[in-house]
Write a protein that binds this DNA or RNA. Structure first.
Lengths: 223, 223, 223, 223
DNA sequence: TATGAATGAGTGTTCATTCAT
DNA sequence: TATGAATGAACACTCATTCAT
């Protein structure tokens, strides 16, 4: 029982001019969102910024909600496509190599336009409230799952779904939080190393507790 | 150039009755925020829910912003105090034991009132926008730093600040995301195990890689 | 299954000042409706005319619809009360006397403020569209029915309900149309006579048609 | 100071195709008016329903107002023509026969498309507001007047104009109100009888007050 | 001639905040 | 101190109409 089709578009632009208008509006939305945040971003303001009239805005987008949703979708679709494109050549790489590359890519993407990423990120709860299922998260999840599945036997975790949940969310959160709280980390190669260490340390089988016998106490402490 | 003092309180309640009013308002704010979200939570509505007049509300809080800030502060102060209280007896425990205990505690706290946690979490960007520095995050950071510092020598990471950043944010994000996306995980003991594995795997020294010598480059690449 | 309670009031005014505001708004509504008609009567315009802010308007009335409904109700309640008051002393009067008096009263009422009557009359379809059942029409119907019932035996019509429908609507329509199309009739005593003749001629038993007997069919056809 | 010529048409369609377009628009207007009412009937919506562009609509009609006026005119012209056609063969019939036939016809016409009749009826005040004189009412009036004039000597009323006003408006109102409030009456042959009784009772000379003499007082009372 | 993209004034309504009582 | 009536700027959104193509 689907609630309603994603109300992000009202009608497809037929003429070339219309497509341009449509794009201008979306771009302006991003700009205004950046400058003023969601609340302060009025549709009139956005239209003005786009150099069109409010009427035109509502010709292509059914509501402010829909407009923002459309922007979000565009953004996430691109992000996901990039991610997938980056993932393909890494399929055959050793895990550590691939992991570092992926993390680096995630950071690069966010570094491109940190404010936009941040703003859209903060918009996500609202989207959920609007009843939009987050198909992009699901696709990302499936992508990572497919990437991990072939090597899962050699890794420590036994619950693939949970492992993907842990990895995806931890990495995403770290990269995102860095944008906001520690932008310097984004430029710091050792940050990539640490995030990779987190991911790889999570997946790596625990060390066969070797030779010299230890008391339980020692074993626990030493880790 | 100090922005302005945190605008959370207009004036301290002197009389007992006033304190009660103040509490009632804060409680009502939480209730309304839960039910309706931030936008739909009007000050009139909150006052009504608290059983006082809007006028009274504005006697104790200078603005809606201030009201929400006060609630947030109360909430975070409590959370931090709890965390600190839980941390003390763990100082002498082996790391894995302590880590599991801490993670369990974080989850428990969120499980208590997931919706409130979620709502307040989603309010944080707005706080930042209001120019409030997040002193609680800083204190949490210092707490964990102090907890980790004595054992840091035996652990893998070499940058303590970055390690704390990584751990705090990864754990927090996982627990928080689980509230929203996978509430079932909150009841699942194996989720605690996985989050602990993530943290401990991150801190654990890499296994002494035996025999054949490698170049630094190689070492970095392999897992 | 009643759709919703008549949405005419938001909250009752407690203080004296509030009651005054409320009245001022209703009065202003009538004034603006008169001048500009329903569509052109914006709520901001009405508030201005009432000398209050829009906000106050919406404190007492939940919507433009509700505001107009309230005005209509006030108006019709008064009209009906007047009608009932006029009807009581006529109960014992001979029918023709009573009928003329009633018609005269209906005309008088409309003559008092013809434009307002007209505007509100034209608003009625919209009310129906809003799903408001017209309780005043029903009460009027019952009133007239009760007035007619005791003498119904001596009258021609055999279906009391239909007779009331015919009388009420014919008289009302004539008086109303006269307001719009022939205001001069409202001042013309012979118009009262004619409307009364219409009503009485309708109720009066057909003259005993003398001599040659006829079939039922024939009787229906002849005059 | 002539207001302006009836703004119902912008220019007469010359080509056949143009006439078809014009008709399509008018038909669509009726359809949309039926479905959505006047306010909700936007010109874009109407154009869409007609399968043409808004631009084309404005090529044939100067405004929404004009469009609706044109529809109204078409509709009333037809109604009047029908009425006139029905009237001709009745000229030589006895009054009661003719009256019943006419009333029956009025009801039939409304029964055909009750919603459209209702919608257009409710639009009439707006037309008046637009400054359009209602030439169809006038023609109807003249038609009925001409019908009644030859027999007027034998009837009770002494003011022909007023009698026509009373008859036309009473019959019209009853039939129209029945459409809205008592659609069952439209199917009820006895309703025709009652309306006819109303009209004929109005026209019929008062019964020759027979034999036993009465005081004026008595006469009035007795009816 | 037909199209449909573009316009923008104008609408109903909300809500944080003030201040007379 | 407490009240709650009053405020009014601001918002999302519509729709009759125009005009470049």
């Amino acid at each position: 029982m689907p609630r309603r089709p994603p109300p992000s578009r009202r009608r497809a632009p037929r003429q070339e001019r219309a497509q341009a208008t449509c794009d201008a509006i979306l771009t302006a939305t991003a700009r205004v969102l950046l400058k003023d945040g969601y609340e302060a971003a009025s549709t009139n303001r956005i239209a003005q910024e786009a150099g069109v009239s409010v009427g035109s805005l509502y010709q292509y987008f059914p509501s402010k909600e829909g407009l923002v949703t459309a922007l979000m979708e565009q953004h996430r679709a691109r992000g996901l496509a990039d991610f997938e494109a980056g993932l393909v050549p890494l399929a055959s790489q050793p895990l550590p190599v691939a992991m570092r590359a992926l993390i680096r890519q995630v950071i690069m993407v966010k570094r491109e336009n940190p404010r936009l990423h941040q703003v859209l990120h903060e918009l996500m709860p609202r989207m959920r409230q609007w009843g939009l299922s987050d198909i992009y998260s699901q696709r990302l999840f499936r992508l990572v799952r497919a990437f991990l599945a072939p090597r899962f036997e050699e890794l420590r975790p036994r619950n693939l779904d949970m492992a993907v949940f842990v990895l995806v969310n931890a990495v995403e959160a770290l990269c995102h939080t860095a944008v906001t709280d520690r932008p310097d980390y984004l430029e710091d190669e050792s940050f990539v190393e640490e995030v990779a260490a987190l991911a790889l340390g999570y997946l790596r089988p625990e060390p066969a507790t070797a030779a010299p016998r230890r008391t339980a106490r020692e074993r626990v402490v030493r880790m």
